[in-house]
Structures are given as structure tokens and as C-alpha cells.
């Protein structure tokens, strides 16, 4: 994933979860609708934010095979 895409995804999910919180508190959308959004959105937001900030630029690593 490119850093730019990750940034967009993180921003989208973050804003969506944040904005829809108010209708949920006001009782406009049900618990489970908002819950489903959070279940999908929270991990996506977390990972996309991670990718946007800290994705490695260089060559990938080999896995750890011993000391």
C-alpha cells in the first residue's frame, strides 16, 4: 500500500467513525449499525494510520531465524 493511499483511508475511516458518533449518541442510528462500523473501522483506521506514518521505505527483511 502506498503511503498516500494509507493516509486517505486512515482519514476517511477516522472521520467517518468520529462524525457518525454524534447521530449514534442522539439515537439516530442503532447501536449495532454503529457497532458494525466500529468493528470494521477501528482496525482499518489503526493499520492505515500505522502504514501512513511508519511504513518502511527500504528493502524488506528476512524473518528472524535465530541469534
Amino acid at each position: 500500500m502506498k503511503k498516500k493511499d494509507a493516509r486517505i483511508i486512515a482519514a476517511l475511516t477516522g472521520v467517518l467513525m468520529g462524525v457518525l458518533y454524534f447521530p449514534y449518541v442522539a439515537g439516530l442510528i442503532t447501536f449495532w449499525t454503529y457497532g458494525a462500523l466500529l468493528v470494521i473501522g477501528a482496525p482499518v483506521f489503526f493499520l492505515a494510520a500505522g502504514f501512513a506514518m511508519m511504513a518502511g521505505e527500504g528493502e524488506e527483511d528476512d524473518p528472524f531465524i535465530g541469534y
Partner: peptide, 12 residues
């Protein structure tokens, strides 16, 4: 850990 540079291993 969240603020560490990260990538996916080659073999993964």
C-alpha cells in the same frame, strides 16, 4: 511499537 518503522518480511 506504534512509532517504529515497519515492513512486511520478505517471506511472509
Amino acid at each position: 511499537f506504534f512509532w517504529k518503522q515497519t515492513w512486511v518480511p520478505k517471506t511472509a
